[in-house]
Nucleic acid binder design. Structure first.
Lengths: 330, 330
DNA sequence: TTGAAAGCGCTAACAA
DNA sequence: TTGTTAGCGCTTTCAA
């Protein structure tokens, strides 16, 4: 008993019609006489025929697949983006081809170039700079990019990082903090904006900014860098962290060092990951609406794929989430 | 200026050779005279030719893509599995087609059936029971399943949940706990094993087991169910949770209710998600080695795809991670 | 070592 | 409404 996957020709033969007819039937491109319709339906059922999507794609040029490239699925911010994007994709009959680039950032380009030929469009979250991204246009596929691209005119979805940082800082200033520091991650394209937001707010209030730079946007790195922030002569009384993961790590290490949060230092993060709720104290943070970003990006991409008009630039407003890691200085 | 993506025929024509030759050249299937090789290389470079993977796949039946179906990417346990699987896939030149099924469990089957035609193999994490999974064999694709399947003979990768639960319970018993409860999630196929492990250990020590059942394997559900566990007449003095997420939620809610952990109740989880490190107290848990599970599954799948012999069943040993959420009862 | 030719399974004009 | 026919871009015998 061979495993002969039936082809459109088998169906056509068995139903006594042409392959074109079967094709049209499968795609609902046309109406049929009851007799033919019944016969085809029956034969398909009997043979268990299902059209071969590969052959289909080759002709139509549509794969019903979109590529989604993120820096690290493991980071809840990206995980949520994937979740949102995937939900929209599924709802429209698309499947997501996932690429996690942090494994080997150097191979990002060849990897995406290869991917581009197998998908109808791409959503990209990359650490590359504008200049390095010009080849993206050559992909000749609908594309959506996360973050702002001053020098490129690709459709983008971005959070207002400057504003979010300003909000968090403003909150700290209002609470009476004087020595506010920023724990950044300069390798990220968004670091500059966040630091800018902090800076602007502090300048407006005549306060100095102290900056620390982490080597990775991770909790472990937050732990590692804690001592250099807290064990100086005059440690900050508030810290704006590049993201929640770093904030989590920092808080844990600070507490281990004997500091009380927020009594000794207030802490804020970015992303509003779920786990900021479960620390003690829970983490004050800037919600970037990660999942919504994924949704927006996928909607924008599908619009582009289907030729619908779409705003080239979507900005998602951040929201400050107040929790226990920040408190008024008396 | 048209966007004429060059085909193999363009290359053949420009190089003055046949398409067959170009094809063989692209695939390194054969050796060539220096002249031909040089010419083809040059033309390919000049035209920027890259073979169309769709056409290639249609003929060879290989897509260099594998499907990975998980219940919820957002759950760190699954995220880690994705991470591990993806790493291996990438290293072997494969891309991962991600499916997140929790959105609509009912459509799992049609979704996977459609997917099966576009991939070289599938890795599946499903909530379906053995009986419902028999159609999987009809997919006629290499397959790897997470979890044990008593009635099916598919290659599987599983954690020893029974053993892990036994270890956690044993730890609690040794610490002197007498009223040990299990907060389970009966909808999961692994719940039974975990509860079994707890039960076996308690029986061996002549202790009674009290069981609670959650409606979702989430932190929020852990919070919700906390009061029904803690506000009874005689609350347990130790709780084994189905997973870390539930444990996180439970701990938070319990603390909000005024209980001290672990003084009033010891808590353990499953999965060893990163965030169990950042609660106060940090969470004692059973590490299932999620990422390693993903790695093992993908390796097994690629073995199957390439026809290499492979053990049908891989069991990954759990490891108890001791942290502050458990303490000796005096 | 190279090429001719026959498809893979399907769609898309265009005719009938 | 249905069928004919010509491919899509590539691989793969089989001959040369």
């Amino acid at each position: 008993m061979k495993k002969n996957v039936p082809t459109i020709r088998d169906v056509a033969a068995a139903a006594g019609v042409s392959t074109a007819t079967v094709s049209k039937f499968m795609n609902g491109t046309q109406r049929f006489s009851p007799a033919v319709e019944a016969k085809i339906t029956q034969v398909i059922e009997q043979l268990g025929y299902r059209s071969n999507p590969l052959a289909q794609s080759m002709i139509t040029g549509r794969t019903k697949t979109v590529g989604l490239s993120v820096l690290d699925v493991t980071n809840p911010h990206f995980t949520s983006i994937v979740k949102g994007a995937n939900r929209v994709a599924q709802a429209h009959g698309y499947t997501v081809l996932l690429v996690d680039t942090e494994e080997n950032p150097g191979r990002e380009r060849p990897q995406l170039e290869a991917l581009a030929r197998r998908v109808d469009g791409l959503i990209i979250f990359s650490r590359m700079q504008d200049k390095e991204l010009e080849w993206l246009a050559g992909l000749d596929k609908p594309l959506v990019f996360f973050g702002r691209l001053p020098h490129l005119t690709l459709p983008t979805v971005a959070s207002d990082d400057h504003r979010g940082a300003y909000m968090a800082t403003r909150h700290l200033v209002t609470l009476g903090h004087k020595r506010i520091a920023y724990l950044g991650f300069s390798k990220s394209r968004r670091d500059e904006e966040r630091m800018g937001g902090v800076q602007e707010c502090l300048s407006a209030h005549g306060l100095q900014l102290q900056v620390f730079d982490a080597a990775a946007p991770s909790a472990l790195e937050g732990e590692r860098i804690c001592s250099s922030i807290m064990l100086g002569a005059d440690h900050p009384d508030a810290l704006v962290c590049y993201n929640d993961l770093m904030a989590l790590g920092f808080m844990k290490a600070a507490q281990t060092l004997g500091f009380r949060i927020p009594a000794d230092i207030s802490v804020t993060g970015f992303d509003n990951i779920l786990y900021g709720n479960y620390t003690s104290p829970p983490l004050t943070t800037v919600d970037l609406h990660s999942e919504r970003m994924g949704v927006a990006a996928m909607e924008k991409l599908l619009d582009a794929i289907d030729g619908r008009p779409t705003a080239p630039f979507t900005l998602i407003e951040p929201q400050l989430i107040l929790r226990g890691s920040t408190v008024a200085r008396t």
